[in-house]
Nucleic acid binder design. Sequence first.
RNA 1: GUGGGCGUAGCUCAGUUGGUUAGAGCGUCGGUUUGUGGUACCGAAGGUCGGGGGUUCGAGACCCCUCGUCCACCCCA
Length: 420
Amino acid sequence: MPSFQTTPGTRDILPPDAVRWRSFVEEFDAIVSLAGFQHIVVPMFEDLGVFQRLGDATDVVTKEMYDFVDKGGRHVALRPEQTAGVCRSFAQHRPLPPWKVWYSGPNFRYERAQHGRYRQFDQVGVEALGSDDPLLDVEVIALAVDFFQKLGLRNVVLNINSLGDSGDRARYVEALSQYFQARIGELSPESVATLERNPLRVLDSKRDSEQAVVAQAPFISGFLSDEAASHFAQVKQGLDALGIAYVVNERLVRGLDYYCRTTFEFQSTALESAQTAVGGGGRYDGLVEDLGGPATPGIGFAIGLDRTLLACDAEQVFPHPSTKADVFVIDTTGGLQALQLCQQFRTAGFASERAYGGRAMKAQMKAADKSGATYAVIIGTDELSQGVATVKSMVDGYQEEIPLDSVVEHVAAQLRKVSS
RNA sequence: GUGGGCGUAGCUCAGUUGGUUAGAGCGUCGGUUUGUGGUACCGAAGGUCGGGGGUUCGAGACCCCUCGUCCACCCCA
């Protein structure tokens, strides 16, 4: 018999982790819904061209895309992120701006797996299309800040920067290119190659030997147009008004080419691995137009589930939700009593569990203990013949006999008393 | 894609310079007399030592290949 395991870079999210994943998304939903963002579901794969608009100098597009030709001859790709899909959706359906949506779900990038980095990875995120108001940038950033706070994270640092408008950016890239060319001897072969493709990315280098050259490189702030500079100033002003702490990091360029003006990234200082970015985003004012829609400004962010949960683990916050049973039914008469009682408890809205396979009383008690149930309801041959059930508190061990036909009501009343 | 570490029971790991029937802890299941959990004690199940080739009288240990995994670069969430 062949045996199988998950393909590289993918993994099973088992209980109780999957339970925690779901409540993570629920928390996110709760926060962004209050700000008027509505849920959207876009396809997990799209025409390859949709994602190519992310930029031909981005690795996400050029080397990490899961693309294939389907049976109908269409060249499609699994989404590497969801912003492009949302913008395509906007261009296709032309909703009334401002259009504020949120999403969650898996994305796919073909790269070597690492701590906090997988080929299939989940994100939650928002996109707001149709307004270039800098205070919208602030509102969007504030949502992410609120979310991290809600999770209980304290060691998340907000980095912000402005990449300017396309003209500013082009002039800056030119200046950067000239600078690095002049000091090309100090760059690693890898960075020289990166310089060819996208000079901005050289700023991202983590190689120690290059830190000096990178540190002395020209700054973007010197190239911003008056409009872009003013926009950035208003964003900072808005953040200040909300009391949100941030660090202006002019080396923050981010990997997707479509970003302009405001860009930001959340770094967890609690994580020690290489992947410390738990979330990030920015403006992409030209993207909708690139996808065939009307010229529409947009801003959004994405937060990585895995990394953020790793940060939660590191800070010991956002614990796994409880999955305890309320009541455990022990039946040594064959199982029919447990079958019926569990059903009745569930109908009444209480989590009820039981053992299967006619196991010994002691084994069933152990199972009851492990289930975390507050009460055990025991039905043996004695109880059955007398028409009663033994109700035992798993907390203090106290037990009493209750008529079988009122046992659900009795235990339900006790449980309500405990929870109130 | 490049480089490095690691692959032994469900999990975490031992396994001495290659030498008989591969071990422990945890977990699981059962038991410690009559129908009662958390503790303790006893016992059991569970592994073709990632896979394939090679060296050897003999390989879990050594060599090669391969797959997987982890970490770093890269990239990004």
